[in-house]
Design a protein around this nucleic acid. Sequence first.
DNA 1: CCCTGCATATATCAGATCAATATAAACATC
DNA 2: GATGTTTATATTGATCTGATATATGCAGGG
Lengths: 193, 193
Amino acid sequence: MDAKTLCLGALMHDDASGYEIRKLFEDGLFSAIHDVSFGSIYPALTVLLEREWVTCRIAEQDGRPDKKVYSITESGRAAFLDAISTPPAPDKMRSEMLFVLSFGDYLPRADVMALVDRYIAEYRDRLLALESCSCAENAPPVRKFVNDFGLKMYKTAIAFLEDHRSDLMNQANGEANSNVEHLTPVTAAGGAS
Amino acid sequence: MDAKTLCLGALMHDDASGYEIRKLFEDGLFSAIHDVSFGSIYPALTVLLEREWVTCRIAEQDGRPDKKVYSITESGRAAFLDAISTPPAPDKMRSEMLFVLSFGDYLPRADVMALVDRYIAEYRDRLLALESCSCAENAPPVRKFVNDFGLKMYKTAIAFLEDHRSDLMNQANGEANSNVEHLTPVTAAGGAS
DNA sequence: CCCTGCATATATCAGATCAATATAAACATC
DNA sequence: GATGTTTATATTGATCTGATATATGCAGGG
C-alpha cells in the first residue's frame, strides 16, 4: 500500500488538500489504522496529477495560505478500486513506548512513571480526537466500523495501561538515578564507548 | 528508534543471530509491539560490531547453515540504556486490512467476506504465536507485561472483528462481481487510465 | 528418486518512506 | 513586539522496506 493509494483513498471520501489528507491520518478517520507523512503525500499527489487520477484547483482563503484542493477522477476511482483488490499486507505496529517499557527493570522508577503517564496521555488525546471526528456521523456504516475499531483499541490500551501502572512502577529499578539530560543517542557517533 | 537500538534491545535478553532477532520481532516477544526487516537488521549489526557494542562468534550447526551469534558488550548495554532514555516517538499503526475494509461498500460481498476471514485468521495466528512464546514464563515481570499487552490487544481485535463480521458483509456492495484477477496495481504505469 | 516447497541462515539494493527543515502568512497571548 | 501555534506547501538526507539472490537440509507427493 503506497502513498498514492492512501491519497486516493482519502480523496474517495471528499476533495482535500495535501495538508487535509495528512490530518485525516493524524487526527481523523484513518488516525487509528494507518499513517503517512508529508514527505510521501506531496510527491504522491504530483504523480497522481500526472496520471490524471486526480485534478487540482487552487482555493484562495482569507486569513490562511492558499491551498491546492485535489479531486479524484473517474479513472482515479477505477485505479483505486483496482489497487485495493490486491491482498493487503499484514498489520504492522511500531510502539517505541512499549519497547522501552519492556526494559523498565533497567530504568529508574521516575522515568518509568513518566513514560507510562505520557503513554496514557497520548492515547487519551488520540481517543478524544477520534471521538470528536465529525466523519463518524454522516459517513456510511463501513466507515463507522473503522472508527469504532479505533475507539475500541484505544480504550483497551488505556484500560490495560491504567490497570498495570502500579505493577510497572514496582518492577522498575528503584536504585538508578533519573537521566535528566539525554546525552548522545545511539545514532550519534559518540555514545558510551 | 533505529534498527541499531532494536537489535541491542533484542541482545539485552540473550545472544542471538540476525535471523533470531528477526524472529523475535516476527513471532516472539516483540511481535505485537514492533517490526524490523532483515534489510535493517544485518547492516545494523555490522555497524554495532564496528562500534564494539556487540561481539560476534560463528556457530557451526549440523543440518543447518552456520550462524553468526552476536553478544552485547558492556559499552553496548550502556549505549542501549542511553538510547532508550530519549522520549519515544508516538505509536504508529499500519493496517492495510482495515484501510481496505473501510471501503467495503465499494467491494463485492465475496471479497469483503474473504478479507475479514483472512484478517481474523491472521490475528489468530499471531495470538497463538505469542501465547506459545516461551519468553513469557522465565522472563522478568516487565517482559511479561508487554506480552500480556499484545495478547490483550490481539484478543480485542479478534473479538471486534467477529462481532462485526456480519454487519460488514451486509454493508458490502452486493451488485459488484468479484475481481479474481488483480490486473495492474496503482504502482504500475498502466492501470485504469 | 526427483521435484517442489519450506525452514534456516546471510546479504544486498532499488525504490519508498520518514523526520527534519525551510518558507510564509495570520492569529493568539503574554 | 516577541514568541508560539495553526494552516499550508515543499524538499532532502538518512533510513527502512520488500524483493531478490544464494545456499543447505528436510519433508512430502508423485
